Lab assay of single mutants.
Amino acid sequence: EEWMVEKALMVRTGLGARQIESYRQGAWIEGVHFKRVSPSGESTLRGTTWYNYPEINKFIR
Rank of each mutant, 00 (worst) to 15 (best):
L45E: 14
E6C: 10
A27P: 12
V11Y: 11
R24V: 15
V11A: 15
G31H: 05
Q25I: 11
I20W: 02
I60N: 03
V11K: 13
P54N: 10
P39S: 11
Y51Q: 00
R46H: 14
G16N: 15
H33R: 01
V32A: 03
N57K: 14
N57E: 15
G26K: 10
E6Y: 07
W3P: 00
L9S: 00
I56A: 01
S38G: 12
L9V: 04
E6A: 09
L15N: 01
R24L: 14
W28M: 02
S38C: 12
K7V: 10
E55L: 07
G31P: 02
E2H: 09
Q19G: 03
M4H: 02
W50G: 01
T49P: 05
V32K: 07
T48L: 09
T48S: 07
W3L: 00
A17L: 11
I29D: 04
A27V: 11
R24H: 05
G26Q: 11
V37D: 12
Q19S: 05
A8N: 09
H33Y: 02
E6V: 12
S22C: 15
V37G: 09
F59A: 04
S22W: 14
R12D: 02
H33P: 00
N57S: 13
T44P: 12
G26V: 09
M10P: 02
S40N: 12
S38K: 10
A27S: 10
Y23M: 08
S43Q: 10
R46G: 15
L9K: 00
S40V: 11
H33K: 00
L9F: 04
Y23N: 03
G14P: 02
I20E: 01
P54Q: 10
G41W: 07
W3T: 00
T49I: 15
W3G: 00
T49A: 05
Q19V: 06
E55M: 08
L9H: 01
S38L: 12
N52Y: 06
R61L: 15
K35H: 04
R46T: 15
I60P: 02
G16A: 12
V11H: 12
G47R: 07
F59K: 03
S22N: 13
S22Q: 13
N57V: 15
S38N: 12
Q25T: 11
A8Y: 08
G31A: 03
Y51E: 00
R36G: 06
W3D: 01
R24Q: 08
R46I: 14
E42G: 11
R61V: 14
P54Y: 12
N52V: 01
I29N: 04
I56W: 00
Y53L: 13
E55N: 06
P54W: 09
Y53Q: 03
F59E: 03
G31F: 05
A27G: 09
K58Q: 07
E21M: 08
E42D: 14
G47V: 14
E21W: 10
E6I: 14
N52G: 01
R12G: 04
P54K: 09
F34L: 02
S38R: 09
V32S: 03
V32W: 05
K7M: 09
E2T: 10
S22I: 14
G41Y: 07
A27L: 09
R61N: 14
I60W: 04
P39A: 12
R61S: 13
M4E: 03
S22R: 12
